[in-house]
Write a protein that binds this DNA or RNA. Structure first.
Lengths: 248, 248
DNA sequence: CGTTGGATTGATATCTGTCAAGCCCGGTGG
DNA sequence: CCACCGGGCTTGACAGATATCAATCCAACG
């Protein structure tokens, strides 16, 4: 029979609103570390099961900040654009991830956020959020942690883009996707990428063709198997080694 | 006679402790937006005129987070390293800049911070800081703004590294240095870079030789004048144009 | 004045982007 | 049910930008 480890659900599993306390993602989300009472206060300000269709914008650059968002299912990409329209994708947000922090500098978003697929979100009004930050030290603590994570994420992207050759970039990305699945209790070696090649190539700062060749090469070398967006990692050790082989 | 706009002071101008309220940098620093009463509370937790010699570490990766820092004079660089020792410089912090936010994720720093020159800092204990965050909504607001700025900064670096060719990277950097000087009331077209070529090249994700050639070319074309770390911008318009000419 | 480390300049190699063609999968309509 | 698109993905040939290697050059400092 084997062990049917669930793979990552890309589509919304159901649409019934679930209390944070029963949400399978609460260990990664804002509620982490809150007691029942605090959770209740937080929950009053959260709007659940907000739907977004594939390619819909969650917010755009210069939009006023109204909410902080948590992904429940589906996936969101954020990106920054130059005046000329050149885009850099900054991150892919999966279930349990928070986004919207970019707007705290000027009460307006500095990047665009767009759904890669049909997506379900929870959203928290920023005014309520500010009030709660004053009242709930635990929430404040968790929020600061999330902020720190976001900064760490961005820093890692800079490290990838600034120091690694293309092969190390892809290897690093695959390892990180694997880990993200693992901590959520999903299969760490088999997963579907939520984004098209074009977006991934952009995120990793390379041409689509280069990315495609890398996938092919990794497959030839038996490190992974690729079928379009479906990935299985066959040799995690070597993948890790490639990920650490940084320099140009 | 001309107009002797002061250039950016790299060396500590004096070492007498100054109240935040009289500090020339307070418009960029945490005190922004606080009233006298709040300022006093904040000030009790701030340690002033902490000295750091050139090349001293302010903190290192995995160090427990004890403080948040504000640069008063001098300059700090932060960097991230791969397991193999490849380093990516993440930012240069000038007077008025805050740093230390990277540690909020796990109460431990994720990057290294090192003085580029003799440096004077103010430091704020994080425990006190957490308490104050609960008590002073205005401080919380300013802090969130600073957090947002930090995220924006990191995002911009990713955009630079991921989408721009080397010439656009350098141009963008010079424009940003110019702006940073300007908002602080210093000459926007004449300044000394606080970092050696090696560090700047690393930050911009290119080889030192490439950076050097770019400086030479910009000078040949009359856009800037370079004498080691001393820069003057002769043609801001063209520099801006180069900065916007992103793609590869 | 010699030494040392940073900065520049030149020659060459290599990686990765660009252009172009073809493939394959999924969807649509007859 | 099958044929035909169309878009995303892959593969190949080639060119160009940038890294690497090596040799000076220069400024700062003792």
């Amino acid at each position: 029979m084997g062990n049917p480890i669930p793979t990552f659900p890309i589509r919304p599993p159901g649409s019934k609103a679930v209390a944070c306390q029963n949400c399978s993602l609460n260990a990664f989300c804002l509620p982490k570390g809150l007691n029942r009472d605090e959770l209740e206060q937080l929950e009053d300000s959260i709007q659940k099961n907000v739907k977004l269709g594939k390619k819909d914008y969650l917010f755009r650059r210069a939009d006023p900040q109204n909410h902080i968002y948590a992904v429940k299912s589906g996936a969101i990409k954020t990106s920054l654009s130059t005046p000329e329209g050149e885009e850099q994708i900054l991150g892919f947000f999966l279930p349990g991830d928070l986004l919207g922090f970019d707007a705290f500098a000027n009460d307006a978003h500095t990047c665009d956020a767009r759904a890669l697929d049909d997506t379900l979100l929870c959203k928290l009004n920023v005014d309520d959020f500010n009030t709660l930050m004053g009242q709930l030290p635990n929430l404040r603590g968790q929020m600061m942690r999330k902020f720190g994570c976001e900064i760490e994420r961005e820093q890692t992207l800079s490290l990838i883009l600034g120091q690694m050759n293309t092969q190390a970039r892809l290897a690093t990305f695959l390892v990180s996707m694997s880990r993200r699945n693992q901590v959520r209790g999903f299969a760490p070696r088999e997963f579907a990428l939520p984004m098209p090649r074009h977006d991934l190539a952009n995120y990793l700062g390379m041409a689509v063709e280069t990315l495609s060749r890398l996938f092919s090469r990794f497959q030839e070398e038996g490190i992974i198997s690729v079928a379009l967006r479906q990935i299985s990692i066959n040799d995690m050790k070597r993948l890790n080694a490639l990920a650490h082989h940084t320099c140009h």
